[in-house]
Design a protein around this nucleic acid. Structure first.
Lengths: 283, 283
DNA sequence: TCAACTTTAGAAATAAAATTCCATATATAG
DNA sequence: CTATATATGGAATTTTATTTCTAAAGTTGA
């Protein structure tokens, strides 16, 4: 089935005056039109049934009946696709509601993050990953877990990757980076003092840098050469960084997949190798 | 709008012979019926237009016209809700395609996980969390990162939580658990030797246990008293555990949120406290 | 400028579809 | 076995959609 409102919108520029007014009415009131008879619509648009039928046929429908059903179909499909805003958790929520809301929230966060990512910038970041000799990851708190996750991934395909649990060590690593190295700083807020220091150190060292932070301006972002964003997310039950780390992982997945895609065969081979021994570290 | 096929199915048990055959036909051929005239349908079901109209009215529709549109609507909604399988990454994918596919894959994994979770079991797990004195988390590889993520969360609301980087330490922790303690073993495969050992140790110690593994039978699951599942996920670009850890985090979010909801006010207070000092560890 | 032609639009006629009404058949209870 | 309720389909009616026809408006070209 064809999407009536889209078709009509397309048709607008070649539409006659009467047709324009009919289309305008339909686009403004698709819901009610979908329940209307052709004569009622003719009356409301100060036109005639014949004109409406002609319009329907010109747009590829059999007649008004078919058009009307297509409209119902489109409206239903749109409604079903609509992402409903996630309600905040309330005191009285059942377990099932909590499951649904938390999951929906995380899904929404992934979708938003997808829309925030600039494919060109991602591409440049993958290039950098490729060209760099050593990948150094920086993070603290739950972002450190994301950094470590990235490390697990990249080590599997034999990319030299450093992370450290301890911030002092992270800072030392940053200070000693070479211009051929790439630093990725993961910090949801982009305001963490420790990460700002790391960013400065990388800059001093003249190495390449990518920040992964929430959308908007923040110190870490400003200090890095490249920027990737995750959705700014309001808390569910004021619980602080919840979905953000899932979005961060998603960004890591994307970088990792992009990287692998650059060296398709080589990566396949390396992954096969690390697969064979019953993947103890992959759990 | 009401879902016609659901209504009709419900109505089946009070339907007369003629009505039954009409309903059967509609349920078997909803697509074509949605495009049919009432007389055609009457002919095909060896009944009459009047019978069909009566049936529509009995089921809460104005008449056949309304019923027909409701059917179109339902079919569209069903189709739109159908989750389309995510295509595997191919050599020729653009960066934008990689972004979309990876994200879609992760979203799908979250949705599947939601459907695998049994609300009753989740509720029991939240109860356990509540009753338990100490929460011990177990994991290795990327599941260890999930365990640590859980620890970060629960520590914020002052729940005593242990995790260790080192498996030997994990095993010792398990061995020394008391019956008032709760162990959560995180293992996507449920087959990791180290986690099986931990599960056995917890069982020996007589403590409560929850497994979080992929769906299906596996050793870790069998050794634990309670089970939560995440979606079994096929790899995108054969990259091993990709979305699974995101689903695991989702399960953690759900447990954590459920826990907080049990002590709504207390948690709010505790979260506020850890929020004040510019959340250095939450990044 | 004005005839020839094309495009556009609506009224009326027609066709199609939905709905109502009614007669009849069938089952059910007394 | 009759009275009553219920179910069903055919015909009549109404509603709705579609076609046809005519007229008006606009466009083109000599």
């Amino acid at each position: 089935m064809k999407m009536p409102t889209i078709r009509l919108r397309e048709y607008l520029n070649q539409a006659s005056v009467t047709e324009k007014s009919i289309i305008d009415y339909i686009l403004l009131n698709p819901e009610s039109v979908s329940r209307m008879t052709i004569h009622k619509l003719a009356e409301l648009t100060y036109s005639s049934a014949s004109s409406i039928i002609r319009l329907c046929k010109k747009n590829g429908y059999d007649g008004f009946k078919e058009f009307s059903k297509a409209l119902v179909y489109e409206l239903a499909a749109r409604k079903a696709h609509q992402v409903k805003p996630v309600d905040e958790i309330t005191r009285s929520d059942s377990t099932q509601e909590i499951i649904d809301k938390v999951t929906q929230k995380n899904i929404l966060s992934l979708e938003d993050t997808k829309n925030l990512l600039d494919a060109e910038e991602v591409k440049r970041c993958v290039d950098l990953l490729h060209r760099s000799e050593i990948l150094c990851l920086f993070g603290i708190g739950s972002s450190l877990l994301v950094a470590k996750d990235a490390q697990l991934k990249f080590l599997r395909i034999n990319k030299k990757t450093y992370v450290s649990d301890d911030w002092h060590t992270q800072l030392l690593t940053a200070t000693n980076m070479s211009p051929n190295d790439l630093g990725i700083i993961i910090s949801y807020s982009g305001q963490t003092h420790e990460m700002i220091e790391c960013a400065k150190a990388i800059r001093e060292a003249g190495a390449e840098s990518i920040s992964i932070t929430r959308f908007g301006n923040n110190p870490v972002k400003s200090l890095c050469k490249h920027h990737l964003y995750v959705a700014a997310n309001e808390s569910l039950f004021r619980s602080g960084a919840m979905s953000s780390r899932i979005s961060l992982l998603n960004v890591i997945d994307i970088l990792y997949t992009g990287y692998n895609n650059r060296q398709y065969d080589k990566s396949l081979e390396l992954l096969a190798k690390t697969h064979i021994r019953k993947e103890p570290t992959l759990d």
